[in-house]
Structures are given as structure tokens and as C-alpha cells.
């Protein structure tokens, strides 16, 4: 366990060193970025991270601000704050060469924002059930966060979640309540600056976007492919938004293939 300090924020970091007998292809450094509110680095630590390290890759996981064991400042939750933390993380760990980013849900949003900001530091992005930061996304996400915060003021909500989704989910929601009620995250996401739509055309970092077939986001795949110059999309049958935790055995080979040379096949036109 490592802790890094960046701009007054303490970030909780876990690293797994790549095994000495790697899979074919050069070992890569992979930074895993988790989702928003009910998420933290355990979604990777307990699923795909060990397999990526066993295949020879150096794996970096961290809790984003407001999540897990990282600081929870009262404000400062715009997309640029999250992508700034990622920048500070790469600086603090002195990672040489461009890194691969894996993003789950909101983690993919942060990864894309970061790639636009520092393309020279990003070798490629594989994102699971993610959307780019756009004005429409910010409005929707802010509404979801504010709505969840409102529902969690009702004392019947947590018992209902436990009954419906189980004790583990209820614990994650209880944790998220501290973020939703104790910080300005919903308003910050709703009011933060987002990249102009035309700026995505200049992003030449290769992107692989994975969707769960039954998720609402699966239908946005063609739009994303038209927005990003180097983008391919994949759909995992039988799963919704929780592709990562729901079927890590499917995600691991997708990521390993992407790290091996999958991203290099996407030649810029």
C-alpha cells in the first residue's frame, strides 16, 4: 500500500508488479481507474488486476478522490479535478513512458479527459461501460448523483437496497452516502467544464470501448466510434453495466489482447 500527496489530496495506491515470466509482447504499465460513488480500487483488485500482473504487466490501482481510502475534500469534484489527480499520480510514481489506462464506467470518462489533456502520456485506453465527458453526460450524471443523494436522505432506502441487492451493495451505498451528502460532487460534475465536441477529433490515442449488451449505453457505441478518430467498440452478451465485476473472466482476455498489440492495429487514417 502506498499513499501519495497531490495538491493537498491524499491518494491511496495499490501496485502489483508484473510476474517475471510475461506473456508474449512487451510488458506494459497499466493504470486502472474505477467508477463513481459506489466504487473503489477493490473492483479491480478482486477481479482483473491479479491476472494482468500474472501476465507480466505492472499494475497500478488507486482510489479516486472522495472514494475508498483516499481523501474526501468537501469540494473539487469536476472532471478536471479527477484527471488532475491521475496526472499527479503518474508524476508521483515517476512512471516512465506512456501508460495504458483501463477505466470502469466514470473511470473511462476520467481516462478520456486525461488523454485529451496529456495525450503523450497515454498509450491507449480500454474502457468498460463509459461515456466521454460531454455537456449532456455532465447533466445526466449530476442528476443521477443528486437524485441518489436525495433518496439516501430517506431512511428506508438503505434497508431496501440491502433487501433487493444484498448486504455488500448496501455497504457500498452506505460508503457512497458520505461522498454524496458530505461533498459538492453532484453540483461540481454538473457545472464543470467539458471538452468542446470538435476537440475529440484531434485525440489520436487508441480507444477500445466495451459495453454490456443489456446496458443503456450499448446503443451509444456507433456514436462514440464517429466521435473518436481511433475507436473500436465491443459488446459483451448477457451483461449490463457491471461488466467488470460481473464477468472478469471475459474482461481479462480482452484487456490482455489490447495490451499485447490490439491497440497497435488501430492505425490513424
Amino acid at each position: 500500500m502506498t499513499t501519495i500527496e497531490a495538491g493537498g489530496i491524499r491518494l491511496n495506491v495499490e501496485r502489483l508488479s508484473g510476474a517475471p515470466t510475461p506473456a508474449p509482447g512487451p510488458p506494459q504499465t497499466v493504470v486502472l481507474v474505477h467508477g463513481i460513488a459506489t466504487d473503489n480500487l477493490t473492483s479491480y483488485y478482486f477481479t482483473i488486476a491479479p491476472a494482468l500482473a500474472a501476465a507480466g504487466h505492472d499494475v497500478v490501482m488507486y482510489d479516486q478522490r472522495g472514494h475508498g481510502r483516499s481523501s474526501r475534500p468537501p469540494r473539487g469534484y469536476g472532471v478536471e479535478d479527477f484527471s488532475g489527480d491521475l496526472d499527479a499520480l503518474l508524476d508521483a510514481l515517476a512512471l516512465e513512458g506512456p501508460v495504458h489506462l483501463i477505466g470502469n464506467s466514470f473511470g473511462g470518462t476520467v481516462a478520456l479527459a486525461y488523454a485529451l489533456r496529456r495525450p503523450e502520456r497515454v498509450a491507449g485506453i480500454l474502457m468498460l461501460e463509459s461515456e466521454p465527458p460531454t455537456a449532456a453526460w455532465a447533466k445526466k450524471m449530476s442528476g443521477i448523483l443528486a437524485g441518489s443523494a436525495h433518496q439516501l436522505h430517506d431512511e428506508r432506502t438503505l434497508p431496501w437496497i440491502e433487501e433487493t441487492y444484498g448486504r455488500h451493495e448496501a455497504r457500498l451505498v452506505r460508503w457512497a452516502t458520505r461522498l454524496l451528502h458530505g461533498t459538492s460532487i453532484a453540483e461540481d460534475i454538473g457545472s464543470c467544464p467539458v471538452p468542446a465536441e470538435e476537440s475529440w477529433q484531434s485525440l489520436h490515442v487508441p480507444v477500445c470501448a466495451v459495453y454490456g449488451a443489456t446496458s443503456d449505453l450499448a446503443d451509444t457505441a456507433p456514436w462514440l466510434e464517429s466521435l473518436l478518430p481511433r475507436c473500436r467498440t465491443l459488446t459483451v452478451p448477457g451483461h449490463g453495466h457491471s461488466v467488470l465485476v460481473g464477468t472478469p473472466e471475459t474482461v481479462v482476455p480482452l484487456v490482455l489482447d489490447w495490451l499485447r498489440d490490439g491497440h497497435r492495429e488501430l492505425v490513424a487514417p
Binding site: M1, N40, L41, T42, F46, R69, H168, R171
Partner: peptide, 18 residues
């Protein structure tokens, strides 16, 4: 760990890192 000691899953990561 979780039910009796009220650990979060993130605490299990910290524990095993220790």
C-alpha cells in the same frame, strides 16, 4: 472480516498489503 469486524472490502486490501 466484513460481517463481524465491519471491515469494508478496501480494508481487506490494506490488511493483505500489510
Amino acid at each position: 472480516f466484513v460481517e463481524d469486524l465491519d471491515l469494508e472490502s478496501i480494508d481487506l486490501v490494506t490488511l493483505t498489503a500489510e
